[in-house]
Design a protein around this nucleic acid. Structure first.
Lengths: 340, 340
DNA sequence: CGTTAGCACTCATTAACGTAGAGTGCTAAT
DNA sequence: ATTAGCACTCTACGTTAATGAGTGCTAACG
C-alpha cells in the first residue's frame, strides 16, 4: 500500500513528533541521518501521505502531524520495540522482590492521603527500626511445600512472608525449627540477626533437622527483609501546579532534593510537636521559597516519626496544621495498637 | 508590638495572598467585609508594616506580599486553625481502617512503578476476586490477648491480620475455633462468608467456646476485609505535564474520568495480549486525543487482570509496549507463585 | 521520469510600542 | 486620626509590524 520511502518518511515524522510535540517540517526530515532526499521530495511525499489520511496539517505552513490512521500504521507496521533499559529492568525486578512490610505501607499510604488532601507535597518519616529486635517467630505450614513465616518485632509489628519448604522436611521438624529459632534469636536486633543465624543457629539446627542448609537460606532471606526504607514522598507534582514554580529551574532543584533521602530525612527530622519553618528559615536552600510544616507522632513520650507537608510559603497554614494534628494523633494510635 | 489594626490588616493580606498568589492592594483589603477603613488608611498602615519588615513589595505600584517575617507572625499569632471537614475526616478514618491486602498492594505498587518509568498515567486492574473462596484459616496466638489470623484463598493469597482475643479465652479454645472454622467455611466464597459465619458457625461455636459472641464479631471483621478494590490509577498528574493538556478543560474531564471506577474498568478491560487504542479509536470521548495501551496478564490461559498506560496520542509506543510486555509477564509469574 | 532548486505565498510566533489600569505615596482637607 | 484627591510608577494587555518556518507549485536537471 505504501512505498518503502513513504513508510520511511511516515516513520520519521511520527518519531519526531513523539519527541517534540511540534508539527514536523520537510526540512528537518531531510536533514536527518540516513534519509538522502531533498526537502522538496519529502514535501511531495508528505502531500501524498496527507491525501491518504496518514498525516494532518494544523494549518497551512505548519509541518505535518500524524493522524490517528498514521499512528495506527506506525504501531502496526513501523514501531521498533524499545529495549527495556537495564536500569528500568532493575527497578521492575526490585519492585517484584520488594514486599513492603506493614509499617512501610502505612507510611506510604499516609503520605498519599496527605498529599491528596492538601494538594501539597508530603514527606512522611517512619520510626527508626535500627535497633528493633525479634520478639517472636513462628512457621505455620500451609501444605507440604509452603509455609507462612510470622515475625513479631519488639515494637509489636507483625509481618508474614510465604516461604517454600525444602523437600523432605516434615511437620515435626518445622516445629523444632520454630523452637530453636525462638530460643536462640529472640531479643537479637535485626541488624545482627542474619549473622547470628548462620553462626549459632546453624550448627544447632544441623543436629535436629535434615536439609538444614537449604532451610537456613530460606530463613536468612525471610529475616533479612527488615531493612528500613523509612521516608516516603508523595505528591511531588503538586508543587508543579503552584504558580511560584513556573520556573523550571526551581522545579528541578526541588525534584533533586526529593531524591536525596539523607537530606530529606535531615530536613524533616524535627522537634516534638508541630513545627512550622517558613521560607528562608529552612536550612536547605532548595526550599527557601517554601514552607515546611512537620508534626511528630509519638507514644508514651517516645517520638516515633514525623509527617511533613511542603508547600509554597503561601500555604494554607491553618488547614494544614489542623490536618497534621489529626493525622499525627491517628498514626500514634495506630502504632499504639501494634505496640499492644 | 503591632496595633490591633495592623494585625488585622496583616492577617487580611496573608489570607488574600494565600488564596490568590497575587500581590494584595489596599483597595481590595478595604472592600473586604468587616474592615471599615478607606484604602488610604490601609495604605499608611501597609507602609508601616513594610518598614517593620512584615511585608514586601515586588515593585512600586504593585500590592504587598508577606515576607518570611510576616508569615511567621501570621503563623504564631493570627492563624485560625481550619476545621477538618467531615469529608476529610472520613478519608483519614477510612485510610486508618483500610489495610490493603497483598494483592491490592501489588496492584498499586505496579501502577506506581509504571507511571514513574513512563511518565504517563497508569491504570492497573487486578484479578476478579468476586468468586474467590476460603481455602484455609488459622489463628496463631502471640500472647494472651493477641493473635494473628491467617487466611488463605483458593487462588493462593495469604493474608494476615492481627486480632485481639476476648479476655478469658485459652489456647485450647483457640484451637477449637480454628478447627470449626475450617470444617464449616472452607470452600465458601468470600461474598457469602460472613452470613455463613453468623448462621452455621455461630451455634456450633457456642457449644465449645466461652465468650463466643465477642469472638464471632472479631472473626466477622477479619473475614469481611476481602472486598475488591480492583483498580488503581497512578501518575494522573503526569498528564498535566504534556503540552497537549495546557487546556484546563481537557484536564478536568480527564480527572473526572479517573474518579469513575466503572468507566475506568470498562475502558481498561480488554482482550488478551497487548492492545493499542489510538485517539478516536477509544470509546470514551474524554480520551479521544489520548492513546491507551493495555496488556493482560494471565496464568495457564486464564486472564487475571490488565495493566494499562494512558498518554497523549503522541506516545512513545515502542518503549511503552516493551515495558508492558515485561511487566505483565512478571506479574503473571508473581501471581503464579501465590497460586502455587 | 524521478528529483530538486527556486520562489511566491501563508500563517503563527515574536518583538516593539502605546495605552489602560491597578496601586502607591504624598498633601491637604475634614 | 482619617480620608479624599492627585500625580506618579510600573505591569499587563492589545495592536501592529516584522520575522521566519513551512508549504505548494513550477521549471530545470540528470
Amino acid at each position: 500500500m505504501l512505498t518503502e520511502r513513504q513508510r520511511m518518511i511516515l516513520n520519521a515524522i511520527v518519531d519526531d513528533y513523539i519527541r517534540s510535540a511540534e508539527p514536523v517540517g520537510s526540512r528537518s526530515i531531510s536533514k536527518r541521518g540516513g534519509v538522502g532526499f531533498s526537502p522538496a521530495t519529502i514535501r511531495n511525499e508528505m502531500a501524498d501521505l496527507e491525501d491518504l489520511g496518514f498525516l494532518e496539517q494544523p494549518h497551512t505552513s505548519a509541518g505535518r502531524v500524524p493522524s490517528t490512521k498514521g499512528y495506527r500504521y506506525y504501531v502496526d507496521h513501523l514501531v521498533k520495540l524499545g529495549e527495556v533499559s537495564e536500569q528500568e529492568l532493575e527497578r521492575i525486578r526490585h519492585f517484584m522482590a520488594d514486599k513492603m512490610n506493614q509499617m512501610e505501607q502505612v507510611i506510604q499510604h499516609a503520605a498519599t492521603i496527605l498529599s491528596n488532601l492538601t494538594n501539597y507535597t508530603s514527606i512522611v518519616l517512619g520510626p527508626e527500626t535500627f535497633n528493633n529486635s525479634l520478639k517472636h517467630f513462628q512457621l505455620v505450614p500451609l501444605n507440604e511445600s509452603t509455609a507462612v513465616a510470622i515475625i513479631v518485632t519488639n515494637t509489636g509489628h507483625v509481618e508474614n512472608r510465604t516461604v517454600s519448604i525444602p523437600g523432605g522436611v516434615d511437620m515435626s521438624e518445622i516445629e523444632k525449627v520454630t523452637r530453636i529459632l525462638n530460643e536462640k534469636l529472640v531479643g537479637v536486633p535485626f541488624s545482627r540477626l542474619r549473622s547470628r543465624l548462620y553462626t549459632e543457629v546453624g550448627q544447632e539446627l544441623g543436629r535436629y533437622v535434615s536439609h538444614y542448609e537449604e532451610f537456613l537460606d530460606v530463613l536468612g532471606n525471610v529475616l533479612a527483609g527488615e531493612q528500613d526504607h523509612r521516608v516516603f514522598v508523595s505528591g511531588t507534582s503538586n508543587m508543579l501546579i503552584q504558580p511560584e514554580f513556573k520556573d523550571v529551574e526551581k522545579v528541578k532543584t526541588l525534584l533533586d532534593l526529593f531524591d536525596e533521602q539523607p537530606a530529606l530525612i535531615k530536613l524533616v527530622s524535627a522537634n516534638p510537636g508541630i513545627q512550622v519553618k517558613i521560607g528562608s528559615e529552612n536550612d536547605h536552600e532548595a526550599i527557601n521559597n517554601c514552607s515546611l510544616i512537620t508534626a511528630t507522632y509519638s507514644i508514651a513520650g517516645q517520638s516515633l516519626g514525623t509527617i511533613g507537608i511542603l508547600g509554597p510559603t503561601r500555604m494554607e497554614y491553618g488547614k494544614v496544621i489542623s490536618l497534621l494534628d489529626v493525622l499525627s494523633k491517628d498514626m500514634a494510635v495506630m502504632y499504639g495498637k501494634w505496640y499492644k
